[in-house]
């Protein structure tokens, strides 16, 4: 039994990995196929040429959409980091009256599904004249309770002596926040940042509602456009679009996987 166990595990690992990864490999192969190859029902393309990728960029302003997604995701990521860090700092380092009540309010926000509030939010954005604007796609997502909890968890591990020392040295609390707390918690900032960037990059419903031209439209909606335009004719081009859209987040995920796993588990458990 002792000898067989690693073999069985490897076999299971390989089989399951093939199944889980299959849709992505499939999309990758199709992105190099012409219409006739697809009709023949081939699985592996004849050659790896970039025609479909060129076409995808020609049919839609994909480069512009990619830039929009990149910009929106970066802004949301930074906004979330700043807003969550400020709140977490107050919860950990400032003893004020009503802290528990405020903390409870933060917890309660997690029970409100964002979709249940989207109608008035849409009306608000319309009234602010933020339709087709970066503000409309970023500012509503700056405050997240999850981010505050994650950072609070890390801030709690900062030795109280550091705070006392900085008080004695007469450091203003904002300086302590900026010079001590943030550098000390770099790892959880990376986790929350990666999480924020990923979720914003993948956002779908909200941009569908608040963009109706190309100005600030993110690439996910571009993908839907590509799919509705090309579906009947050219699946290769659509899949090229898919590969273009997922490459940035896959790279981010591969780089930050360990971080993300540790950080998310912490946020989940404490």
């Amino acid at each position: 039994m002792r000898v067989f166990r690693p073999i069985i595990t490897y076999v299971l690992l390989i089989i399951t990995a093939i199944i889980v990864f299959f849709p992505l490999v499939y999309a990758f192969f199709i992105s190099f196929m012409s219409g006739s190859e697809l009709l023949q029902g081939k699985f592996i393309p004849e050659s790896f040429h970039l025609d479909n990728y060129k076409k995808a960029f020609e049919r839609l302003p994909l480069a512009h959409y990619l830039w929009n997604s990149f910009f929106i995701s970066t802004v949301v990521m930074l906004g979330q980091l700043l807003v969550s860090a400020l709140a977490a700092f107050a919860f950990v380092f400032i003893p004020f009256k009503g802290r528990n009540i405020v903390f409870f309010i933060f917890i309660s926000t997690m029970m409100i599904p964002w979709e249940a509030t989207m109608i008035p939010n849409f009306i608000t954005i319309q009234q602010l004249d933020w339709i087709n604007s970066y503000q409309g796609l970023t500012i509503p997502f700056f405050a997240i309770a999850f981010g505050t909890f994650l950072l609070r968890q890390h801030f709690l591990t900062i030795p109280k002596e550091l705070k006392e020392a900085s008080d004695i040295a007469g450091l203003r609390s904002f300086k302590f926040f900026w010079k001590v707390v943030i550098p000390y918690s770099r790892t959880s900032f990376v986790t929350l940042g990666a999480y924020g960037f990923l979720t914003t990059w993948n956002m779908y419903l909200w941009p569908l509602l608040v963009t109706n031209n190309d100005d600030v439209r993110p690439v996910q909606i571009g993908l839907k456009q590509l799919q509705t335009q090309e579906m009947a004719t050219d699946w290769g081009v659509v899949m090229a679009g898919v590969i273009i859209v997922i490459i940035p987040t896959l790279i981010l995920l591969f780089l930050g996987q360990k971080q993300l796993q540790k950080g998310l588990a912490q946020g989940a458990l404490k």
């Binding site: 889980v20 992505l24 996910q220 993908l223 839907k224 997922i246 896959l250 995920l253 591969f254």
Partner: peptide, 12 residues
């Protein structure tokens, strides 16, 4: 490989 689907958006 197993965690890769987290990097793939809903639309994709």
């Amino acid at each position: 490989i197993y965690s890769s689907t987290m990097g793939v958006s809903v639309a994709a």
